[in-house]
């Protein structure tokens, strides 16, 4: 069994409100898995459970278990910084740091204590190439990241995420703020990255889900309604609700 992530009976409360209800789900390694569902269904919350970014929010309580490669990531002995190095994340809005392009990519490594200049140069180049951005920015690595276009910024964020060599890459609606051309480029990139990373992507765009993911989970009101191969979900969902959503009857 090559499941990278096992989610067992995961429930999450915002204060008293239950935002995730006993979600159980296995995510396969080196595949891409999409979470879809109407807004507010808990897909982003679920995604943020995977690198424990929800911990930052006041009043959040989590029950259940998530194991990654057999390790329970909610185990008190787990170190958050190390977990997050292993589970990278790309956000809905591109969020480059107010630093140069080079410094943006090198940030994660520098934090982790790598100071060797040649190694950093190497990783920066490799990550930018990996994010298909190298050719566009190689001449202005020391310029501010804010000079890049929206699509470039988002790919920069992807490059930044893969620079620390995570195992899993979480993507929270990575294309929602991009124009169609930039979206196509990022989608292309996601397909490329699948080879090396386990990708979990949240999207509200069903076409995108069907294009980039191998597996799809449909969520509704904090519950996991159906989880299967993408083909199956889109062609032949076994639950009526899924079918209604996919065919655009609500959402």
């Amino acid at each position: 069994m090559s499941k990278a992530i096992n989610i067992r009976n995961l429930s999450l409360y915002y204060g008293k409100a239950k935002a995730l209800k006993e979600v159980t789900l296995d995510i396969e390694a080196n595949k891409s898995t999409a979470f879809i569902g109407p807004s507010g269904c808990g897909k982003s919350t679920l995604l943020r459970c995977l690198n424990r970014l929800n911990d930052l929010i006041e009043g959040v309580k989590i029950e259940g278990e998530i194991t990654i490669s057999g390790t329970n990531i909610y185990d008190p002995s787990i170190d958050l910084t190390n977990l997050r190095r292993n589970v990278g994340m790309v956000f809905q809005k591109s969020n480059p740091f107010p630093l140069s392009i080079y410094e943006n990519i090198a940030y994660g490594l520098k934090i982790a204590g790598i100071k060797d200049k040649s190694k950093l140069d190497h990783v920066v180049e490799k990550s930018l190439k990996g994010a298909a951005l190298w050719d566009e920015v190689k001449d202005r690595l020391n310029e501010s990241a804010y000079g890049l276009s929206g699509g470039q910024q988002q790919r920069l964020c992807i490059a930044r995420a893969i620079a620390v060599e995570p195992t899993i890459l979480l993507m929270d609606e990575p294309c929602s703020a991009l124009d169609p051309i930039a979206t196509a480029k990022v989608e292309e990139l996601i397909k490329e990255l699948k080879k090396d990373y386990t990708i979990v992507i949240v999207t509200h765009n069903m076409q995108q889900a069907s294009r980039v993911s191998d597996y799809t989970a449909f969520m509704f009101l904090g519950e996991l309604i159906e989880f299967d191969e993408t083909k199956t979900i889109f062609m032949n969902p076994s639950i009526q609700q899924t079918n209604d959503y996919i065919s655009g009857r609500f959402g």
Partner: peptide
């Protein structure tokens, strides 16, 4: 922006960093 904080934390940096 909050995104920048999340971005930094998601890369494994501590709050102080």
């Amino acid at each position: 922006p909050k995104g920048i904080r999340d971005g930094s934390l998601a890369l494994g940096s501590t709050k102080w960093e």
